Computed example of a mutant assay.
Amino acid sequence: MTTRLGTLHYVIDHIYGALMHRTRITPPFFSRGWGGPNLELLERMAKQLFPMYLEGHNCPPPPLVRPVWRTVWETKTARLREGVFQTPCDDELTAALPPESRTARVAWLVPKDVPPQKMSCVVHLAELVAMLYAGMPCLVAYVILIYGIADNVLAFPFYGRRRPFLQRGARLLCVSDLLLLGRATIEESRSLIHWLDVEEGFGKMGVCGLSMGGVHASMVGSLHPTPVATLPFLSPHSAVVAFCEGILKYGTAWEALREELAAQKITMTLDEVRERMRTVLSLTDVTRFPVPKNPEAVIFVAATDDGYIPKHSVLELQKAWPGSEVRWVRGGHVSSFILHNDEFRKAIVDGLDRVDWKESW
């Protein structure tokens, strides 16, 4: 029975993937190519940063942001506010972002009548599952209301109200957009955590995310200068796995990428194009990032029958971060998101429990 259920979950992923990625309902990823100068900029920046990581240097401290807030609703026990702030990326990266993506948007759900010094706070990196209002994920809301954990839901660049005008839905137009999205998300998350820590005075901090959000949560936890609980859910160690090995490879515009290279007088087979994609997306390999300050507070939640994320990918990152924990849930990528919210919530609570309260408190 267990094997049959595992197969069913895997099949559900592939049926969903076929509808989303093999039909003409939505355009494929990267239909406008590699990204030209933007891709060159991001590759250059990554090549400057990785040697620092390998030599053990700390990532520069994040700039402090000050979001502007407005109250959306409040009850006797909780308050939801929406905030905006300009992305703290440097001038080159900000110029590379589409105008619609340069303003960060965050939803802050916090229990009332509890001093921040006595409260934990988690930054939740949101893709399609959290769009600031009714889209606040039940995962987060439940954690806050039941366990008294404040939460900031940060919307990705290129998604929701930060989506570029020419982009349809979630389908990024260029390969460089994926790297830009990641770099901006990392800088915005680190700055937001810094603000919550220094200005608001929360007693302990964490960062979580699901799927692509989980990859970025791993990066943020790795690069943040102070210990934070790091909680990646249903996420790979690299975008290579998602776009070159998992179901998303069927939703990638390989022919358009090959044709762009041909226009530059670079002749490649489709297999060679896929290999070039692997090289580019290796910049997202989290195993090349530093081990987080508190690896015992890293909890991965992974699915046994995930059609998008193979098991080996999760285990590679666990191996790179000794002391981290992997928790397995029975299901696929789609079904686990629906069925296993309790496990995600428990990981958030347990991860935060493994972070010490600030010494000042």
Rank of each mutant, 00 (worst) to 15 (best):
R22P: 10
G221D: 03
H340M: 05
D113R: 15
Y142R: 10
E187T: 02
P310I: 14
I144S: 07
L248S: 05
V123F: 04
C174Y: 13
L166N: 08
L125Y: 02
G221S: 12
P27C: 05
H14P: 07
S189M: 02
A126L: 06
P232H: 00
F300G: 10
S211P: 07
E325I: 13
G35Q: 01
C121E: 06
W328P: 08
G6A: 11
G36E: 13
F233N: 02
E199V: 15
A18G: 14
L234F: 06
L210C: 10
M268L: 06
L139S: 15
P98M: 00
V207F: 05
P310F: 11
V110L: 11
K204V: 05
A170K: 13
L173V: 01
L166S: 09
L281V: 00
A150F: 03
M52C: 13
Q167K: 04
D342N: 10
P67T: 14
E82S: 06
E316T: 14
P28E: 03
P116Y: 01
I146V: 08
P111W: 13
A302I: 03
P292R: 05
H124P: 14
L283H: 07
H124I: 05
F289C: 09
T23L: 11
K265L: 11
L39V: 13
A126G: 06
V198H: 15
A170L: 12
V286D: 12
G203A: 07
T230S: 03
P111L: 05
E343C: 11
F85C: 00
I299D: 07
R32K: 11
C208W: 01
M20K: 11
P115D: 12
S324F: 02
L93Q: 06
R161L: 15
G35D: 02
F289Y: 15
V122H: 04
V220Q: 04
V11H: 10
E100Y: 07
